[in-house]
């Protein structure tokens, strides 16, 4: 049953993606990307990644939508303008990449089998040692904050740098503009 729910949700995901490609109204693109994030979070729940689904929903459907709408407010553009760009080159590049990726998936193990190489390396150790070593039942939390905590620390640094970049890009120039407006 979970397999069929998974397949149906993935089909809807593909349909929403096609709608995003075709759509020219930028608000609709933003709302459709929010819908895409909700559907993706549901897929992740079906695939047992509960924590990832929570993060994807809060980041993709929450923060990302609000940030995109904020940008639409700052730029004030409502529609994508219709330039007569040739679609031959993008189509060729993406179809070529797609063909190579499909060729690459032939070597992958079948979906959901238990003895795939991914599951034999270190994951059993994490699952077995989590309770005795840390006492936390949620293994994802254990790995994130205990076994790979330096990784998480690096991620925090990345977010800090990005926040700094956004503040430098937007803060300074807008303040100047506002001062100029009050003078004139």
């Amino acid at each position: 049953m979970e397999l069929y729910i998974n397949m149906a949700l993935l089909t809807m995901l593909a349909a929403v993606t096609v709608a995003i490609i075709v759509q020219r109204d930028l608000f609709s693109v933003v709302i459709l990307s929010g819908i895409y994030s909700f559907l993706m979070a549901s897929v992740l729940i079906v695939l047992d990644a509960v924590d990832v689904a929570m993060t994807e929903a809060s980041v993709g459907a929450g923060i990302s939508t609000v940030v995109l709408i904020g940008t639409l407010y700052l730029t004030g553009q409502k529609r994508e303008l219709n330039y007569h760009r040739s679609i031959a080159v993008p189509l060729f590049v993406s179809l070529g990449t797609g063909a190579m990726l499909i060729w690459g998936t032939w070597g992958l193990p079948a979906f959901g089998i238990q003895d795939a190489p991914v599951h034999t390396h270190i994951a059993p150790t994490f699952l077995l040692e989590s309770i005795p070593e840390t006492g936390v039942p949620n293994v994802v939390t254990t790995v994130l904050a205990d076994y790979r905590s330096f990784d998480t620390f690096g991620e925090t640094t990345v977010i800090f740098t990005a926040g700094l970049g956004v503040m430098l890009l937007l803060g300074g120039s807008r303040r100047k503009k506002k001062k100029g407006e009050t003078k004139s």
Partner: peptide, 28 residues
Amino acid sequence: LALAVTRAILGPTVFDRVLAANTIGTLA
């Protein structure tokens, strides 16, 4: 969910899409 996604893709106005997005959230 499939019908709500259809409405979100077809929806003539933006408000139809917002309504469909809200419904999709509830259904999720």
